[in-house]
C-alpha cells in the first residue's frame, strides 16, 4: 500500500533524530496505523492526519528514546562520580605537596583542557534531548576524555612515585573504578543501534 506524504515527512523528522533501527520500527507502527485509519475512514489525507495525531510528535518520541540511551546513562554516572574522584585526588595531591612535583606547564594545561572537554561533552550528552546520535558521540567523547585523564594521572603517579598514603590509595582506586566503568559501558556506546 502506498504511503502518504505527511507520514513520510514525519518519519523523515524521526530519522534526523533517532537511529535507523528505531526509525524502521516506528515506520512499521506508523504505517500500520495509517493503513488501519485508511480502512476506517476511506480517505488518504484524513487517514494520515488521524494516524499522526494518534502517533505523537517527533520531539516527544525522540526524547523518550534518548532518555533510555546508554550514552546518557553513562554520562550521568560519570558526572555524578566526577566530583568525588576529583575530591579524592585533590586531597591526595594537596597532602602530598604536589606543587613540588616537576610537571611541565604544557602538561598541566593539557590536563586542564582534557578535564574541561570531558565535563563539557558529558553535560552535552545529558542535556541533549533531540538527537540520539549527538548524545552517543558526546558521551563517547566525554568518556574517552575521562579515561585519558585518569590514565594520565595514574601514569604521572607511577613515574614520580610520591610517598604512599591512604588518601593516595583511595584516589588511585577511584580512578581505576572510573576507568572500569567506562570500559564496561564502551561496547554499548560504540555500537550503533
Amino acid at each position: 500500500m502506498a504511503g502518504h506524504e505527511l507520514i513520510e515527512r514525519h518519519l523523515q523528522m524521526l530519522a534526523e533524530r533517532l537511529p535507523s533501527s528505531v526509525v524502521e520500527e516506528l515506520a512499521d507502527g506508523l504505517t500500520t496505523s495509517y493503513e488501519d485509519q485508511l480502512e476506517r475512514l476511506g480517505d488518504r489525507d484524513s487517514a494520515a492526519r488521524a494516524a499522526l495525531a494518534d502517533f505523537g510528535d517527533a520531539d516527544t518520541i525522540a526524547t523518550a528514546f534518548i532518555r533510555l540511551s546508554p550514552g546518557r546513562g553513562t554520562a550521568i554516572r560519570l558526572l555524578a562520580i566526577g566530583p568525588l574522584v576529583g575530591l579524592t585526588w585533590g586531597a591526595a595531591l594537596v597532602t602530598g605537596h604536589t606543587w613540588a612535583w616537576s610537571i611541565p606547564l604544557s602538561a598541566r594545561l593539557a590536563f586542564g583542557l582534557a578535564l574541561s572537554t570531558a565535563v563539557l561533552m558529558l553535560v552535552v550528552a545529558v542535556r541533549e534531548r533531540r538527537h540520539y546520535q549527538a548524545v552517543r558521540l558526546a558521551a563517547l567523547g566525554g568518556a574517552g576524555s575521562v579515561v585519558i585523564l585518569d590514565s594520565s594521572i595514574l601514569g604521572t603517579v607511577a613515574a614520580l612515585l610520591p610517598p604512599p598514603s591512604v588518601l593516595l590509595l583511595i584516589a588511585l582506586v577511584a580512578s581505576l573504578v572510573r576507568i572500569l566503568l567506562v570500559v564496561r559501558a564502551a561496547p554499548a556506546l560504540i555500537s550503533r543501534p
Binding site: V22, E25, L26, G29, L30, S33, D54, F55, G56, D57, T60, I61, A64, F65, R67, L68
Partner: peptide, 17 residues
Amino acid sequence: FDLPTGTVYPALHRLEQ
C-alpha cells in the same frame, strides 16, 4: 487506555533493556 502509538515503543525498549 488509548496511548499515543509513539509512546508505546520507548516503553517496550525500556522493558527489553
